[in-house]
């Protein structure tokens, strides 16, 4: 795949692949079948994800719960095209990404999924608004529509008056809200939240979860929310438990 291909053609669409999608819009946001991730070690191997099966429907919000090291981040990384599975099948928004190479996966991340990571989520030298707009700069630039979308998201997230602030000038909760806006900028099929409230106190965490739920449900976007806080799960449609790399 050459450099050009990365930007060629339209956005990925549901009809590009998959046999069992009835219609693109109702296609599940995520299908994982026997997804496996193995890290070879010096004289053994670590099975980070052990033949995981999971389906997340198009507008479903799933809480992914499990102890530390159980494979939650690995599962999300594979679902989001950050990691390639060692084996198994992964379909995101109707696109089978199981055999995608690094450049195709880069495009998947840019067009099909949104991420809110555990730690670093914002570019420190960009303002809140620019942290949203940068998403538009990574692929084919759309310009004015992207600016409108960024302003609308900031408004919805209660950050309109913080648009020009750098991340360093924002509180933890505000930063997390900017990250949510950033994850929604590319109109993804699936948003992956890896412990989105772990850095926030309980009250703020609940408020952020409420916001996440409102944003996802109003847009009909699917989400996986990784957590080990049982109180978080109440915001989701259902909980999926993991242990030792297995989906229970």
């Amino acid at each position: 795949m050459n450099e050009q291909d990365e930007f060629d053609g339209d956005r990925f669409d549901g009809d590009e692949s998959v046999d069992h999608a009835p219609a693109p819009d109702q296609a599940p946001a995520l299908i994982m079948e026997k997804a496996r991730k193995v890290y070879p070690m010096a004289d053994s191997e670590v099975v980070a994800l052990d033949d995981a099966d999971i389906v997340v429907e198009a507008d479903e919000m799933v809480a992914l719960v499990g102890p530390s090291g159980s494979g939650k981040t690995t599962l999300c990384s594979i679902a989001g095209g950050i990691l390639s599975p060692t084996s198994g099948r992964v379909v995101v928004g109707g696109v089978d990404i199981s055999t995608f190479g690094p450049k195709q996966l880069t495009r998947v991340r840019r067009e099909l999924v949104g991420f809110v990571f555990q730690s670093v989520n914002l570019v420190p030298f960009l303002t809140a608004r620019e942290n949203l707009l940068v998403v538009d700069e990574l692929g084919r630039r759309t310009g004015a529509p992207a600016r409108r979308r960024a302003d609308q998201l900031l408004e919805e997230l209660g950050l309109a008056d913080r648009a020009k602030n750098l991340p360093g000038q924002l509180s933890g909760g505000q930063r997390q809200r900017v990250a949510i806006g950033r994850a929604l900028m590319n109109d993804p099929k699936l948003v992956l939240f890896d412990e989105p409230t772990s850095a926030l106190d309980t009250k703020l965490g609940m408020a952020v979860m409420e916001l996440i739920r409102d944003e996802m449900k109003s847009r009909g976007i699917a989400a996986i929310v990784v957590t080990h806080d049982e109180r978080i799960t109440q915001f989701c449609d259902r909980s999926v438990h993991m242990e030792d790399g297995k989906v229970l």
């Binding site: 450049k103 570019v123 940068v134």
Partner: peptide, 8 residues
């Protein structure tokens, strides 16, 4: 972060 959110 930029690579992770799809920057080539």
């Amino acid at each position: 972060l930029l690579r992770a959110i799809g920057a080539p």
